[in-house]
Design a protein around this nucleic acid. Sequence first.
DNA 1: CAGTAACG
DNA 2: AAAG
Length: 207
Amino acid sequence: MDQSEPRAADQVIRGIALYREFLDLPAQQEVLQALRRVIAAAPLFHPQTQRGKQMTVRMTSAGKFGWVSDRRGYRYEPCHPAGMPWPPIPPAILRIWNALSGSDRQPESCLVNFYGEGARMGLHQDRDEKDMGAPVVSLSLGDEGLFRVGNLERGGPTQSVWLHSGDVLVMGGAARLTYHGIDRIRFGSSRLTPRGGRINVTLRVVT
DNA sequence: CAGTAACG
DNA sequence: AAAG
């Protein structure tokens, strides 16, 4: 249906649009509550990389496909490693996509990454999707995280920015394949997550 | 297969 | 090599 013109980004970092505090506190709480139901249906798991190293984040997914990683590689699967189908993407999360993606398509995958104390994610590209035409939309909830932005290939200078609860990133166009990662979490810095931790929710078209 | 260096 |  008709949408108002999307709000302008607060900052653009190498083509990645940052919308600071796109969700206010009540909206963050609504999404968090929905994520608790997602995690109840599809528990967080601790993936391994292709080379057998355990990642420090725990993750799960919602939607038609979820991202999984093990020695067989990175890929999207229709079911959780424990066998159950992924639950549907909560409407409160779909609204963010519809407000900011600029895409006609709906997201097929909603990856939920939980960063506990000391968790990080190395520089990587989101390149496991067959269709890279739609952007990746990324919501931060809970503790602050230091986001690092690299280049379209490995190497070269990088830039970092602290992300806060409610911030949304849109990685589209030429920036869709930019290397990025999370260097550090300020554990316990947010009041949204009383027991600490950062949650990142990423929406993608996969097929 | 694992360990190390270096990357950022 | 490396969502390490």
